[in-house]
Simulated assay, not measured.
Amino acid sequence: MRTALRLEPGDDLRRRLEALTVERGWPAAFVIAGIGSLRITALRLAEATEPLQLEAPVEILSLCGSLSLAGAHLHMSIADAQGRVLGGHVAAGCEVRTTVELLVEVLEDLRFERMADARTGYPELRITPR
């Protein structure tokens, strides 16, 4: 099942998507595409332990990732007012400025979980039949 969503000004991008996943009971889903704008951005850059926080208007150029009842794994690229582009892992704290428009594919016959992976040191995606 494919669905379109719009997040509202003031929404926390990551937290709102995680809440919608729980509210709608999506066992496995992917954000296929996302565009919009943010007032505050929180991105964890490659190999960083804490997110970088930017408090300036930015445009979302791309947003994609997985959603499950265990949480979200989202990546995003943004552009600032000078056209500089930055990207990384979406952290909590990204505040919608005007809108975020999303296309989500719900995979109703699968279940996504996050399991500790000794090789990477991160909780990694585990895909099982529903």
Rank of each mutant, 00 (worst) to 15 (best):
E8V: 06
H73E: 12
A48F: 15
E101R: 07
A91P: 10
A19V: 00
E105W: 01
V22M: 04
I78E: 14
L74F: 11
E55R: 07
G36N: 12
F30A: 14
R6A: 14
D117Q: 06
R24M: 10
E8G: 06
L52M: 15
L61G: 00
S62V: 07
M76H: 08
T120M: 14
A29T: 00
E59H: 08
W26F: 11
R24H: 00
R130P: 12
L38P: 09
I32H: 15
I60P: 09
A70V: 12
W26Y: 06
S66H: 02
R39P: 02
L38H: 03
L7I: 12
A4N: 15
L69P: 03
L54I: 11
A91W: 15
E101P: 00
L63V: 13
P123G: 13
R2I: 06
L110C: 07
A81K: 11
L7E: 06
R2F: 04
R14Q: 15
G83L: 02
A48C: 14
C94V: 03
F112D: 01
E18P: 07
A19G: 09
R114F: 00
G93R: 00
D11Y: 05
E47Y: 04
R119W: 02
D80T: 14
A118N: 03
L103F: 08
L125T: 13
A72P: 08
A19S: 01
T128W: 13
R84C: 09
A91Q: 10
P123D: 15
E113T: 02
I127Q: 07
R44F: 08
H75Q: 13
I78M: 15
R6T: 10
V100T: 06
Q53P: 12
A72G: 02
S66D: 11
D117C: 04
A116E: 09
G25E: 14
P9S: 13
L43P: 07
V31G: 02
Q82D: 11
F30Y: 12
G34C: 14
C64P: 10
P57M: 15
L125K: 03
P123M: 14
E18L: 15
R97Q: 05
A81I: 07
T21V: 04
G93V: 00
A28C: 08
S37D: 05
P27I: 14
E55Q: 03
V31Y: 00
L86V: 05
L61P: 03
R111K: 15
A33R: 01
Q53N: 13
S77G: 14
L54E: 08
A70E: 14
G25L: 09
R44S: 05
R97C: 07
D117M: 02
R97Y: 12
V100H: 09
S77R: 11
T128K: 13
M115W: 09
L43W: 09
E105R: 05
L107C: 05
G121T: 12
F30T: 05
L13K: 01
R2L: 01
A19C: 02
L110M: 11
P123I: 06
S68T: 10
G10C: 12
I40E: 03
Q53R: 13
M1L: 03
I60K: 07
I60R: 08
R24N: 07
A56L: 07
E108C: 06
E101G: 01
I32N: 10
E8T: 08
R15A: 03
A33E: 02
L38V: 14
G71S: 06
T128R: 05
L102V: 03
I32R: 11
H89M: 08
L102N: 01
A92L: 03
I32A: 13
E23S: 05
E18H: 09
G25A: 10
V104T: 01
V100F: 04
